[in-house]
Design a protein around this nucleic acid. Structure first.
Lengths: 329, 329
DNA sequence: GGACGCGATGGTAGCGTTCACATTGACAGC
DNA sequence: GCTGTCAATGTGAACGCTACCATCGCGTCC
């Protein structure tokens, strides 16, 4: 910077002013400085800047170490939005979802000097950990979170599950079975709630939900326990991957979807449309959620005190080929 | 830091020494300093540290904005390894894969002050862009890259494709058709090479490869152009998602896999095992590749001059239910 | 017993910015 | 013509740390 100042024949302060788009610089001076910068291939040192301003222009993201479709797309949604707003994105992935790991991850990000943190681990441990984040660090929970004291962006899981369940009941199914996610995941619980409550409202019997771990394998194994039963004509799976495992099990058992049994998933991963048959599912706009989370975080950073805003993104039922009326007896 | 020094009754320099694990501190002094730190809840300011040392302990990753399974797992592999080595990870995702975007991304990371960069966009534009990175910035290309002047970590695509092709020929198929990835992707080209060369070596006819865009949709559409042909008994798809689309098209056309037609994918995404039928595919260890890439980068950072090391990770053929002998005529 | 080496510590400068304030010059107003 | 105002620029300090060198005390050696 001193070099640039020398070449342009101005003080370092004027260079700084040009750098920061101050309007207190004469156009011709600005031009002189700019050309000196070009000549010297000067680039502002963002570290020094961060030191003096106290803001690093970097946001931290705590993400679960997984290739689940949801978190990955959310991450990219965040990055894209952050980019547009002039922020860098630093990630820390946690391998296990206990509270300790999440807190350690947050600690790491704080040590790095991030200006704010987004947490996209939709697990109860993460939600709880968020409450322990020091009050001066802006935080937003994405995809799920505790109800109070921390801003949250989430898809309306209840509505999504209710929509899926209603769709199946509307086709004439007497009830709907549910292959749920792990109960320690907030989303899984909310989907159970939406499903159960819809069944109750419709006066339909509520079968016991069975819980998998989101993996195709768990869907496959749980489905094998279900295929023998005459009363199972419709299954609502808590995500598309488990739905895939279920499809596999049904096919092995010689059952045809949707003739013998209807199936609805959740997420709408890119593959869902090409399952055999194409999967009816509930679409979540993960990208948009990442975007909203980022905007909420910037909001919070701007206003100093932690808000408790809650942005809810609506899911959308996508009807494809895996659902139909129940077999007539 | 000054406060800690005061409380511990030492100079700030000694505090710094404790912070940096210098062995020039008497154990009892160290203990005094440490307890002062605890008392004041002191945390080192990594930004100030970065300013004076010139290293930010942060690595940059340029990733393609996609939820393709490969890049996402590689990213996490990198993060995990970086974490272990005491580095932070900052990501920039690029939306389109032209050279300009990749260079801009690299620029952004440099402006942020990263100590090194990993590029996981296995596209020719990215590979070319890497060559334009200033020589003093350590770079590693992951998953693919140019042959010279930049260290590269990659799976042996040629061997993977060759293995898949040999497997199908070994089952008795007269030849193997190939649904390739976009030719602008280095990996796609290498898989074509491996496939073609294996066919030639075996004296089998080489059908013209058709190119998709990695998406299930493209696999589906390309497969519909193939299903009518009597001479197509085996297809090698360049990734699992296209294989899924192909399966869908075959099923629609009333063809049964593997009875009427055998199919092999590439990647071994978690879902592949639960396709109908379970997909024979070529597994790439993306996590390991991320890890190796990071280690290579640290190596390069340590040795000042850019090496041209090339780490090759071997893929593994995973035989499942989508391949069998050709139908007897 | 003085010179020396060495372990432990302290003092000062400087990393590259921005911030707060000082200075300059031009121009308007009376 | 003097003062006040304001735009444009400059000066010095500070951000919180580490690098470098100086200092101090102690034991060892001849």
């Amino acid at each position: 910077m001193a070099d640039v100042a020398r070449v342009a024949g101005v003080s370092h302060q004027t260079v700084s002013r040009v750098l920061n788009d101050s309007d207190l610089v004469r156009p011709e001076t600005r031009e002189r400085v700019l050309s000196a910068m070009r000549e010297l291939d000067y680039r502002r040192n963002s570290v020094a800047r961060a030191l003096v301003t106290g803001r690093s222009q970097t946001l931290g993201v705590v993400s679960f170490d997984t290739t689940l479709y949801g978190p990955a797309s959310t991450l990219f949604g965040i990055e894209r939005a952050a980019h547009e707003e002039g922020y860098f994105v630093s990630i820390v992935s946690v391998r296990s979802l206990d509270r300790e790991s999440v807190l350690t991850a947050i600690d790491r990000l704080q040590a790095q000097g991030v200006d704010g943190i987004l947490i996209i681990t939709p697990h109860e441990a993460a939600a709880e950990a968020v409450l322990h984040v020091p009050g001066d660090m802006p935080v937003v929970a994405v995809e799920a979170g505790p109800d109070e004291s921390v801003p949250v962006v989430a898809v309306d899981q209840f509505a999504g599950a209710a929509g899926a369940t209603r769709h199946l009941l509307g086709l004439g199914h007497r009830t709907v079975w549910h292959v749920a996610g792990p109960p320690s995941w907030l989303e899984a619980r909310q989907r159970i709630d939406g499903w159960r409550s819809t069944l109750k409202d419709a006066g339909a019997p509520v079968p016991p939900p069975v819980s998998g771990d989101w993996s195709p394998r768990s869907g496959y194994e749980l489905a094998r326990g279900l295929v023998g039963r005459q009363d199972v004509t419709a299954i609502f799976a808590a995500n598309d991957q488990m739905a895939l495992g279920i499809l596999h099990a049904l096919h092995e058992a010689g059952l045809e979807v949707p003739r013998d049994l209807s199936l609805v998933g959740f997420d709408d991963i890119p593959e869902a449309q090409y399952f055999t048959p194409a999967l009816t599912t509930v679409r979540q706009d993960f990208n948009e959620m990442g975007r909203q989370g980022l905007l909420l975080l910037l909001d919070e950073m701007g206003s100093a005190n932690r808000s408790s805003a809650r942005v809810v993104v609506q899911p959308e039922l996508v009807v494809r080929g895996s659902t139909a009326a129940p077999p007539s007896r």
